[in-house]
Design a protein around this nucleic acid. Structure first.
Lengths: 233, 233
DNA sequence: TCAATAGTGTCTCTTAGACAATATTGA
DNA sequence: TCAATATTGTCTAAGAGACACTATTGA
């Protein structure tokens, strides 16, 4: 969406953008949010939401990514973003040499506004592990990379609490971990690991009942962050 | 080194460069290579070697980093590079909005040419964990980040074989790991972990003798790469 | 009482950490 | 034989995996 770019500018400067792989749980499965592009290039194709760096407004690369969430998806509140990498080359965007700085974020489904802004035709939740064919640019690869990084973190025992609602049960948590890793977890061992987990707080007296034994509800501890070097406070 | 940049260009496009934290072992300690800048900005200060992206020559961000090694340090052969992250902002370089894509590499000291090219005043090996004050730009932070990533990999049991010469003993390897992690390793447990390590090959009949019991020499297995998901072949 | 899910206990096996013992070489 | 370093062994403790058992609720 943008100003005029002279051919010379195209040669001397790369186009820099931030793209966001937003992961969420939809009925127990890990999904990634795609948007249908309403502008050229790749108009009509499905892509990760992204935005072009605007040096006059953005103060950092994180800023660009946060702007994506705000402007394209209507996400007002602060969402933790993790940078995956930067990918650049002359051919990945038909407009010329371009750099994509890729981020991912985790959000419970109910915090993502269902209806989106005006720069986007439509949104879709695709299976994170198999987002489908025909994605715009190299976004299929990008999603794969983001998922690798997400799995790395979860494998190293950081809890993906940002995927869960404010209150959740240990079974919910286990389901989230399994959705990310794609591997079933052993219940007893899983819970044993959570014994002295500072990131988790049992909510005194709060349970979720179904037609069976009620489950203790938990919440993320104050100041929890999803990053290496402990997920604890 | 560069063309004229109009103020407008500065506003519309960020300056993109690749910087390389080259780690090596100097007398058993982990060091990072710094160069003294011979041009403005920050002329005379110590910095990570870096180069500005040239869209007409570079085919990827990795290319830029490899160009740094070739042109600034005279390193001809292919050196494995790992991307750490991209860092951008309006104030980190006095020339305006800039992005640095940071890489690190591991090399045995004897593979780094002692004398360097013409764009660099001098080089120095600084302690990786405390590279000193007064570095150019935000390179002190950059080194810290690179070291964090390097430690992550080594903690997850990937062997830093690229730091060692073609032939090395298990004690050499242990020393390298200790230099990176900053923590002494227990000899017996360390060797136990190497038992079925596919990345290591004992060199039949080759030993290094001192005034004591000779040590078996090893080499990196064919196709060894220093990256997550096994250092093995 | 039954179905369904929550939560705990137990046993075995692997690995890590600490520390000791043995092996080999040149001086 | 001694100093110096390489290499292996042993004991203990912590954690992971597998699997079974107990607990609680509404129907």
């Amino acid at each position: 969406m943008s100003s005029i770019r002279s051919p010379k500018a195209l040669l001397l400067h790369p186009l820099v953008s931030a793209d966001v792989a937003l992961f969420s749980l939809v009925e127990g499965a890990l999904k990634v949010l795609l948007v249908q592009r309403s502008n050229e290039p790749d108009k009509g194709r499905w892509a990760l939401p992204g935005a072009v760096l605007d040096p006059s407004r953005d103060r950092s690369l994180d800023d660009v990514a946060h702007r994506v969430l705000r402007d394209k998806l209507g996400l007002a509140s602060a969402v933790p973003l993790t940078q995956v990498h930067a990918l650049g080359g002359p051919d990945r965007d038909p407009r010329g040499w371009s750099i994509s700085v890729l981020f991912y974020a985790l959000l419970p489904l109910d915090r993502v506004p269902a209806v989106v802004g005006d720069t986007v035709e439509a949104i879709a939740w695709r299976d994170a592990a198999r987002p489908g064919r025909g994605l715009a640019f190299d976004h299929a690869t990008q999603i794969e990379e983001a998922l690798v990084r997400l799995r790395d973190l979860v494998e190293s025992r950081v809890l993906p609490l940002h995927l869960l609602p404010a209150q959740f049960t240990l079974t919910d948590l286990q389901t989230a971990v399994e959705a990310i890793l794609g591997v079933p977890q052993e219940k007893s061992a899983f819970r044993r690991r959570l014994k002295d987990e500072p990131a988790l707080e049992a909510i005194e007296g709060a349970f979720r009942g179904g037609n069976q034994r009620p489950a203790q509800l938990y919440r993320a501890a104050e100041g929890f962050v999803f990053e290496k070097g402990r997920g604890g406070r």
